[in-house]
Design a protein around this nucleic acid. Sequence first.
DNA 1: AGTATTTCTTAAGTTATCTTAAGAACCAGG
DNA 2: CCTGGTTCTTAAGATAACTTAAGAAATACT
Lengths: 194, 194
Amino acid sequence: MAEQYFKTFIEHLRETIELTTSDIDKILEVVEIVKLKRKEFLLTPGQPSRHMRFIAEGSARSYYLDENSQEHTLQIGIENWWINDLYSFLTQKDSQMYIQAIESAVILQISQSNLEKLYREVPEVSTFFRIKIQNAYVALQERMIENLSAEVYIRYQKFIKDYRDIEQRVPQYIVASYLGVTPEFLSYLKKKHL
Amino acid sequence: MAEQYFKTFIEHLRETIELTTSDIDKILEVVEIVKLKRKEFLLTPGQPSRHMRFIAEGSARSYYLDENSQEHTLQIGIENWWINDLYSFLTQKDSQMYIQAIESAVILQISQSNLEKLYREVPEVSTFFRIKIQNAYVALQERMIENLSAEVYIRYQKFIKDYRDIEQRVPQYIVASYLGVTPEFLSYLKKKHL
DNA sequence: AGTATTTCTTAAGTTATCTTAAGAACCAGG
DNA sequence: CCTGGTTCTTAAGATAACTTAAGAAATACT
């Protein structure tokens, strides 16, 4: 059954870069599988994020707690999404984030040291992550702009339009904390706009 | 006098990567100089951003207008900062942004096609921009987190702490539009906290 | 299937932020 | 150094979003 996860993973990489069968062997050699139950953590604050992590099954999110212990969800992902505290991974500073399974999940991950080795052996992998980071930047800027400009309900509508599949699998309080509002207020807005 | 701008520019690159004199020649060959008066535009909506732009003198910002014609400032920069709509530059989609000189400014820019040529001739330059984009991501995530967590006045204090030199040269309504509030409200907060 | 846990809703009272409008202060450029 | 444009302040009234608390609904796990 690990086989199926690997197969999907390689297909995912091949959407962006070209890989020979020998490349694939080198990649799979360094991929670790992690299984998580609902609500289990992959990363908690106080340590650097040392892996690039790919959701093979289930769903996960990254979030942090502000000074008032309010949760703020930075990222929500399902199968075939990457999930990480890229900030911590890139700077190797201690993370302030939790990465947590929402549903039970299977994660494929590559450690930083293995990744660097892989970059040398399969340079295409380096291209892959360069593009991923660019895309992450682009997505984050889009979200920043929306947060500055649009009212919550507009942002909510955009969210369910863009991520209907996610919205249906994730508790609403997580969506609220992604949008940057209290669950009570989101609930109120939904009723108001019926 | 262009010489001085080039010199500072090369010094800036050398803070991140190593360059031979022949590398430098290749770089300077493709650098264009653009001079702008206060409030002049380097980029306006409806066209892709086709250059990487470095502020050699003066100050500039990028901003966009939301549906209610409210300005939102994404980036503010002074000497030795890069300024761009990276979203548009990376995706080559039409920009929705204005890039505008705040004070009169001198910009050094490299076109996308020249940059690609340069990447081949001086691969270190590619490393330079990979690192810059990573840093941009990291900075943007930090800002996103702050916007989600902290109240405006806290964000304002952080802003003047981190960017005192910028704050002193830039009109307050631009700072307000960077923080995501109306100038009236920022004015009110400043008085309140005297 | 039954119970404990988790998530969602409602509502009342509160606070943060916006809108509008007008005058005051400041500054750039002739 | 004058003058027109730009930026900043003030204040009143409006709206968006939050807090708290409690019950209702949904869901997970045994």
